[in-house]
Design a protein around this nucleic acid. Structure first.
Lengths: 148, 148
DNA sequence: ACTATATGGTACGATATCGAATTATATGCA
DNA sequence: TGCATATAATTCGATATCGTACCATATAGT
């Protein structure tokens, strides 16, 4: 493997890290204090995919350590945005449900973030975003698969 | 702006966040304890772009808060991988130089990370990475520009 | 059924990240 | 020149992230 190839992937991951950084900073500047993009993302996932999933399943969906998800869910629960129930299928486990307050917060947050999204869309049009997405999804899935 | 468009950008940033997460976890599993991708990235930058830059310039290059860069540089200095000197052009400021030890560590780290890069390259070929990169760079630059 | 191993979740400690405030120096402008 | 404001960097405090260890329960092999 030539150095040039290694450098290519370093450059790729570096761009990705910077964009992640920029988007997180931009969004968190809009969210109320104490709520992070991680909180919003979980609520968004619960609405889009449906709730009732276990914490571990959520951690896997975001490819995060389960301790991180425990922490994020604790924050959401403290705000009353999710409810944790014992999992009837497995006494070790729990199920996560989004509350009405959680749905309201998600809706509000989308409204708060919309202007930023619009600013991005103005300079990086949806067609370009759509062009990028499949490649990123493919990369994500492949890297996901490497984790065994 | 239709909801579909907002969702598109959320999906885009979500994929980017997950890939950032996966690549960071993969690389940090290889690096010696106490050294993060952030440390490696800074050393890599100093070698590729040249050293002597100020901490603030480095923070901007990575689009990070300057306090984060102060912390990262302190870690690198503690390991003897960079040397901080007063900036003769500006007494408030400093210049960051990579040491011989820092260069050696960077080389070693590249060697440690190479197998992972190779595994990624095997399933997500360089041609695809190259295809992705310009769009990501464009997105990065546009978002960068929004930061006024 | 019994035991070994695997799995879901949490507690805890270390530390990375980052905003706010602070200090020192630089710059602009009257 | 003198003063207001801006800028480079650090300190400090809060907390997000994450690895390790642990407990409870489940599953597999005998």
């Amino acid at each position: 493997m030539p150095d040039k190839t290694t450098g290519l992937y370093f450059a790729l991951f570096n761009e990705i890290a910077i964009i992640e950084q920029l988007s997180r900073a931009m969004f968190e500047a809009r969210l109320p204090k104490g709520l992070m993009v991680s909180h919003f993302s979980v609520l968004n996932h619960l609405v889009r995919v449906g709730d009732g999933a276990t914490p571990l399943k959520l951690a896997r969906a975001f490819q995060q350590p389960k301790t991180t998800m425990t922490h994020t869910l604790a924050g959401l629960e403290r705000h009353g945005y999710v409810r944790m129930e014992p999992n009837p299928k497995d006494k070790r486990s729990k199920q996560v449900f989004i509350t009405k307050e959680g749905r309201v917060f998600r809706e509000d947050a989308i409204g708060l973030l919309a202007p930023d999204v619009a600013r991005i869309a103005a300079i990086f049009p949806p067609a370009q975003a759509e062009a990028l997405l499949p490649g990123l999804q493919a990369l994500r899935e492949e890297m996901d698969g490497l984790r065994d």
